[in-house]
Structures are given as C-alpha cells and as structure tokens.
C-alpha cells in the first residue's frame, strides 16, 4: 500500500461523492461547486499518472474558466426552481437501470480483461515535460491543432451571434 495508492483511494471517494452531489443537489450553484471539487480531484490523478501539464491545464481551463462561465450563467438566469412537471414518468427509473447496465458492462470488461497486477508506471520526467508535449503537438498534430483554433473561433462567433439581440427585436 503505497502513499500514491492511499491518495488515489481517498480522492476517488471524493470524486465519486462530488459527482453524486452534482446529480442530487437541487440548487445548480451547489452542482457547479461539486463539479469544481470533482475536477480538482481528477487533476490530482493526472499528477499521480505523470501528466503535470494536463493537471494544471485542467485546473485553469476547467475548474477556472469553464466553471466561472457556468456560475456566471447561473447567476445571470437566477437559480429559479421551476414547478415540477413530469411528462415522462418512466424516464428517471429507466435512466438509472440503463446507467447501471452500462456500469456493470464496463466493470465486467475491466475485471475480465485487465489483470490487477498491471500497474501504472512511475512518472517519467521526459513525458511530463511540456517541451516534449509541445514538440509532438506542433509537429505530428499540427493540422488538428490548427483545426482547434478554427473551432474556438467558430464557438466565439457563434456565442456572440446567438446571444445578440437583433435590431428588429430591439425596436419593439
């Protein structure tokens, strides 16, 4: 039982509890904060697995930028509780049954195919180095990298166009 193992088990419990809190809490603000907790514990897993750059990117991009966007929209719209209407009564039980089926399938595949004796390797200094990451990203994956910049541009323009009030609408 190494120290890494203890950290992993503790944080795995935290991550699962945070995900449960996200699903169960009535107030979307609490859901957002539980999701931040989940992201932070997953970031520590990335550190254990030898990807410190990704871990810090996870904290800044996910737990920082994306969650601020979420919280901003929640505050903007108000955490109003709509009246409970259930057009599809069978939806919730069916969702839980189906997700449990997927979970059992995944765990079965995991247990039958992957031996417990296969362990993760110790963090490698070369693989953890952002320089290595950059060399592969800008050489082997330079075309996908350019495409992601187009995706971001389209998303930025799309967000502006979607939220912009048209001139005709303002005139009303």
């Amino acid at each position: 039982m190494t120290i890494n193992m203890l950290i992993f088990i503790f944080l795995a419990i935290v991550a699962i509890a945070a995900a449960t809190g996200l699903i169960l809490s009535r107030n979307p603000v609490y859901s957002a904060l539980f999701l931040v907790l989940n992201f932070l514990s997953v970031a520590v897993f990335y550190l254990i697995l030898g990807a410190p750059f990704i871990a810090l990117a996870q904290i800044t991009v996910y737990a920082g930028a994306i969650m601020v966007l979420f919280l901003f929209v929640i505050m903007l719209l108000g955490a109003a509780k709509p009246k409970e209407v259930e057009p599809l009564k069978w939806q919730r039980p069916l969702a839980i049954v189906l997700a449990a089926a997927v979970l059992l399938e995944g765990l079965y595949a995991l247990i039958t195919r992957i031996s417990i004796s296969v362990t993760t390797t110790a963090p490698d200094a070369l693989l953890a180095d952002p320089k290595t990451l950059a060399q592969v990203l800008y050489n082997k994956y330079s075309l996908p990298f350019e495409i992601t910049s187009v995706i971001l541009l389209v998303a930025a323009i799309g967000a502006v166009v979607l939220t912009k009030k048209s001139v005709k609408e303002e005139g009303k």
Partner: peptide, 12 residues
C-alpha cells in the same frame, strides 16, 4: 504504483 484497473474503474 497503483494498479491500472483503479483509474479505469473510476473513469467508468
């Protein structure tokens, strides 16, 4: 080091 099944199970 931890068994690889742990992070995979957590991801599932």
């Amino acid at each position: 080091m931890i068994p690889i099944a742990f992070p995979l199970g957590l991801a599932i």
